[in-house]
Simulated scan of single mutants.
Amino acid sequence: MSYLDITHELYKEVALTPQPGLCCITSPEKSLPGLTVPDVMREMNYGCGATVHFGDLNSKETVLYVGVGGGLEALQFAYFTRQPQSVIAVDRVPEMLIKAQANFKLAADLNKWFNPDFIKLVQGDALNLPVESESVDVAAQNCLFNIFKENDLTKALTEMHRALKPGGRLYIADSITTQQIPERLRQDERLRAMCLSGALTYQQYVDKIIGAGFGTIEIRSRRPFRILDKRRYQLPENILLESLELVAYKNPVPNDGACVFAGETVIYFGSEDFYDDGKGHTIQRDIPLPVCQKTAQNLRALNHEDLVITEPTFHYAGGGCC
């Protein structure tokens, strides 16, 4: 049985019998006016973060959500779109689709504004998405891609890129590792299906997204998620897994590399009103300016006494330049 078949069987099990402890959201569920979430959706929210970034969304967009789970995030996306079939929710596991459909009927009973027709449920595979090229504005996945082995991860990211319109956005919440996971654990297909052994490091993960053709990446959040316990897994030391939330934009990768915003900021405090680095960046005196990682690196190399460039916070809230 392949690792994808084992994953399929695991999520068939948790569709039929919800397991709230399978994954855990590491940030509190955000409330929205007029949205009541059925309890079963919370129990089946098998993610490691959040992909619904409320300040980014509007009613004119079509959303592709891959790996529907209990339907909580698909419901949250539908809160913003509120148009027939404006959220396309894809899942490989028929039992999960059936459960999500039942959950959306419960949500309709609790929310007068919601119609289950807002969400189109489709059986399909992340490696061969059942949508046309350049047909969606937003694509999202929560704690799914870390399950894939390297070649399949490349394929899944390429499929998301294909489905997005130019300028479209890929929302990801996924687990990453702070150190390499031993190969014997990576080969444990059950652990991989449980999002515990397939994780890449931060840089490996970001490089994969850039390799799929995304030219701008914003790191929205990076925080602790789980521990691979040295006693339970016979390791020399504990391995920390982290939850990474990011947004990747379908725009061309610049010749000098992708723009990755990870919370670095430059502050100029010299005698002039502004500082011009000669490469298109004008920095107003005393006004913090978020910058991408390659710009931060270039500015550090100047060793300018009137510039301070902060270290990455891995939390980017916008307003920067590259």
Results as ranks from 00 to 15, higher is better:
87 V>M: 07
225 F>L: 13
51 T>M: 13
34 G>C: 14
188 D>T: 00
26 T>W: 09
25 I>Q: 15
275 Y>Q: 02
276 D>Q: 15
308 V>D: 02
133 S>Q: 02
230 K>G: 15
70 G>H: 11
76 Q>D: 14
258 A>G: 08
228 L>Y: 02
283 I>C: 01
139 A>G: 11
221 S>C: 11
128 N>G: 14
307 L>E: 06
177 T>C: 15
61 E>A: 10
169 R>G: 05
105 K>W: 09
253 V>E: 08
156 A>V: 00
268 Y>F: 15
144 L>D: 00
85 Q>K: 10
119 I>Y: 06
202 Y>M: 14
128 N>C: 14
241 L>A: 01
34 G>Q: 11
93 V>P: 04
314 F>Q: 02
178 T>S: 13
122 V>T: 15
83 Q>R: 08
95 E>G: 10
54 F>K: 08
117 D>W: 01
228 L>I: 11
244 L>T: 02
33 P>R: 08
222 R>F: 01
131 V>C: 05
165 K>H: 06
253 V>R: 03
322 C>E: 02
39 D>S: 14
138 V>S: 12
161 H>I: 02
92 R>H: 11
214 F>L: 13
188 D>K: 00
300 R>S: 07
69 G>Y: 05
181 I>S: 00
282 T>I: 14
214 F>Q: 12
288 P>H: 07
186 R>H: 05
254 P>N: 05
212 A>V: 10
322 C>F: 09
288 P>W: 02
184 R>D: 03
140 A>N: 12
273 D>L: 08
35 L>V: 11
80 F>C: 06
201 T>E: 03
50 A>S: 09
83 Q>Y: 11
213 G>V: 00
247 V>A: 13
86 S>E: 08
45 N>C: 02
210 I>Y: 03
103 N>G: 10
62 T>V: 14
147 I>H: 02
252 P>F: 04
147 I>Y: 03
169 R>S: 13
249 Y>I: 04
192 R>Y: 04
9 E>G: 07
